[in-house]
Amino acid sequence: MPDDIILDVKGLKMYFDVSAPLISRMIRRTSKQMLKAVDGLNFSIRRGETFSLVGESGCGKSTVARAVAGLYTITDGDIVVEGENLSKIRDKTKIAAISKRVQMIFQSPYASLDPRWRVRDIIAEPIRAFHLAKDKADERQQVDTLLRQVGLSPSDGEKYPHEFSGGQRQRISIARALSSRPEFLICDEPTSALDVSVQAQILNLMTELQDDLGLTYLFISHDLAVIDHISDWIGVMYLGRICEITPQPELFKNPLHPYTRLLLATIPDLSGETTHVPLEGEVPNPINPPTGCTFHPRCPYANERCKRERPELRRIGPSEVACHAIEEGRI
């Protein structure tokens, strides 16, 4: 059912120009350098589901989140939100209509709230921007409702962000993101700056809100426990590409891609029964990524084809995996 798809990302590429200034490039005779943060990404999210992107730092997760939110001008590819191609629409009213329905929760609860604004004004900013309140009293009532919805009290609206703890601030961020009544929330590591006990509260709040309001989440995290808790689908990212898309129960039961297996092996285990096979190497530089499969320098199953040819996502059971070794049946 195509109308069930709320977000469809096709061949998304996001390169950043990290070259030296023109004059030093001319002196040293070097060419332009592009950092390939996201290099050909395909995935889609169904309405009401949570799709998570997981991966190490620097693999391009946050870049995907920001690109989908429309904060970057993408290098190539299509981001289709509810049938509208983000990079193709020019009509201002249409852009406003889409940005009203797509909101974002940021990683740092400290930097994502303007320190000079009262909480009430922070939450009301999207309401004002999209003219969603009839008058001041209506706006006030909407903000009070939102504050209660995220577990704060209406009187908290008069305070400034610095009077709250990290967890409370993240609740304010969520209230703000919900204030334009969006259907789709992009959550860029919303819990990674919080204590573990507070993380659980925020995750539970997000799950409750999803059930109540029928929200769809694109969830970014590096924490596998968090991912396991909240996701319906999981995309494993490595160096700007997705190497495996899998339903949540499958990830831990039946990881396919060698990189997914590596990630799962890094989870500390108290029983001491699992034997660690530490993988060599580090994440390569995305300015000059390895040829073929970007994971081949660290992969124990890599062969000549992996060095040469880039693997595409292929359906294996319920999952999709980009790996030559699995396709050839070597693992």
Binding site: A96, S99, K100, M104, F106, A111, E125, S180
Partner: peptide, 13 residues
């Protein structure tokens, strides 16, 4: 570079 600026841009300010 702070996220509250990104949040403001997000709602087409």
């Amino acid at each position: 570079r702070k996220d509250y600026i990104a949040a403001a841009k997000l709602i087409q300010t």
